[in-house]
Nucleic acid binder design. Structure first.
Lengths: 339, 339
DNA sequence: GCGGAGTCCTCCAACGTTGTAATGTGACAA
DNA sequence: TTGTCACATTACAACGTTGGAGGACTCCGC
């Protein structure tokens, strides 16, 4: 079948363990022996069997990334960033989609699948604070992403939701806009991206002495383009006036922009628009979309690093850590200054 | 540590092999024994160790999907479809990004990574026909996707590129358009999406008795939004007249649309536009984009099926198969009939 | 009550690797 | 000469599972 250590050992005239030692850079090996072994490895084209190594060591070299949906640009880009970060650590990534379904999100933590994996990056969308206890039952190292659960029992890497939304809103205010609509609220939600970002929006209004007007705040179920479009339709029908829009993600911003354009509104002339996430697409729409870059690369890099640390030190108890990535305001055409 | 078959065996008062037999649905087990074992499994919360099983059986239950870039919507959606299809077969998917870099595309076939995986779905973008021999050296079951290599030594699942482009072009002609520009050509390319789709374009012109005009055909390097935008800028600058655009993928179509709109052209009134791929986004742009649905789900489903068959029958020689997914014309606003 | 044909279950040996402990080999000091 | 020590290598047993061979038991017909 395939070449094993035994074959290499036989060819090099040493024991199988010596081959293992050479491969694992054991200190005490005569240079000559080492050379003979590496030559044999070369000649036979030997590759260590990762499954066997995994069985022996209990590691697989694979981590899983659980996300709601890869078709969502934000998560596709996050996955991309995670894969690059994992690659740098010599890890492979299995992606699992939960479809933002609570049952499935919980199920993915328990299933057999978990066995294939040294650790989990867990980006839940349907889970709530009350579900935090579930994370206790997971024996696999786990790093939580997103903003559904705070101060849970695991490491947590997320973004400056409130501050980002505040900066976005402040940016519109600085342009002179006073009637700023929100697309993507979840009324009553305290945490979660929607809750946190709404707080930031209110803070920015407060800072500028602008009164909060509930009629300007549009709820959206799923944060897709269609939701943004639908919310904007309702806003327009309601007759409430506005000259700025803060959308809680870019997809909704784009959906809303489409509806406004259909209705004959000019962006940014009549309405300035800003999104959140800095997905690639925002660079190419008409107009290009101003947005908040939440620091995806940093999130991925730190999350993988946390996970690797936990994987490398199985026994050790590490206090749950929290990391908030730096964000940045990205100014594009949709919030350009108009004459 | 964790619970093994030994624990279950001890609790159920049977041998470890009997536990294995129960789990693997071996025929001859007394119902009573089976019950005792399953009860023990239940009680202990036993899960088979997949690594050990993998070592014994030589299977890992993981396949890898090699694609250029997850940030590209087409590949993200393809990955999504593949993961669903794999899930249905109880397989996990490791995604590897090649960045459309030839070296890396080749390297990914050789690396240690391959060991973690029962089979490979291989969507190359930089490889050429001359590289087909590389596929011979791969001992892992492999199914090729895309259109860089035809009649290679492996199964191949792809789409009706030529027919799709022909239908797209014919659709514009049916609308009365006669000066139809192309965005995304690669001059001199015979196969590859660009080459095949250009053939379809020409066929449709031929069918309608329209003469091919080289000035209408815009080359694009990478098939991104920016490329489509750039190509359209050049087309407009060149002064050549056109009333229709066939873009060889949706991203380029959107980039081109953006430039046309900036230039004051109305879509579909002045120029009708059709893309290729049916990425989700096309449903939400302004105007919504007509396109060719290449049958991503079918591609994913068939590719996984082919791969699973090869994995299940290691010794057997199966003649390389070719599968072309059915495509569909999706009519949206960008090719609506105008008064 | 014995042979034979099931049926049910167990024992042993793998799969390919690595950790542990032990063994072998010189060199050098006592 | 012997003991000690550092280095270099090896034997063996795991990791948790499954395939194969075979053993024990039951049931049947004669």
């Amino acid at each position: 079948m395939s070449i094993t250590m035994h074959d290499v050992a036989r060819l090099a005239g040493v024991s199988i363990k010596t081959v293992s030692n050479v491969i694992n850079d054991y200190q005490h090996i005569r240079p000559e022996t080492r050379e003979r072994v590496t030559a044999a490895i070369e000649e036979l084209g030997y590759r260590p069997n990762l499954t066997a190594r995994g069985l022996r060591s209990g590691r697989t070299g694979v981590i899983s990334l659980i996300i709601p949906d890869l078709r969502n640009a934000y998560f596709a880009e996050l996955a991309d960033a995670v894969m690059r970060a994992a690659d740098a650590q010599g890890l492979s990534v299995i992606i699992e989609q939960s479809g933002a379904d609570r049952e499935r999100e919980i199920g993915l933590l328990g299933g057999e699948r978990k066995q294939k994996v040294d650790g989990i990056l867990y980006s839940a969308l349907a889970l709530g604070e009350d579900d935090a206890y579930i994370l206790n039952d997971v024996d696999t190292p786990l790093v939580l992403l997103g903003e559904r659960i705070f101060h849970g029992p695991t490491d947590h890497v997320t973004m400056h939701n409130t501050e980002g939304a505040r900066a976005a809103t402040a940016h519109l205010i600085a342009l002179g806009r006073r009637r700023i609509a929100v697309v993507g609220a979840h009324r009553g939600e305290v945490i979660g991206s929607a809750g946190l970002r709404l707080v930031g929006y209110k803070q920015a209004l407060d800072d500028a002495g602008i009164e909060y007007d509930d009629r300007l705040v549009a709820e959206v179920g799923g944060w897709f383009r269609s939701g943004g479009a639908q919310a904007m339709r309702l806003l327009l029908e309601s007759g409430v006036e506005f000259d700025g829009v803060v959308a809680f993600n870019d997809s909704m911003a784009l959906g809303a922009m489409r509806v406004m354009q259909e209705a004959g509104l000019r962006i940014p002339h009549d309405v300035a628009v800003i999104g959140y996430d800095d997905i690639d697409e925002t660079r190419y729409t008409l107009p290009t979309l101003s947005t908040i870059d939440p620091g995806k690369d940093e999130i991925a890099e730190v999350a993988v690093r946390f996970l690797v640390e936990r994987i490398a030190n199985p026994g050790t108890v590490i206090e749950p850590r929290e990391h908030l990535a730096a964000f940045a305001l990205v100014e594009r055409e949709s919030t350009a200054v108009v004459a």
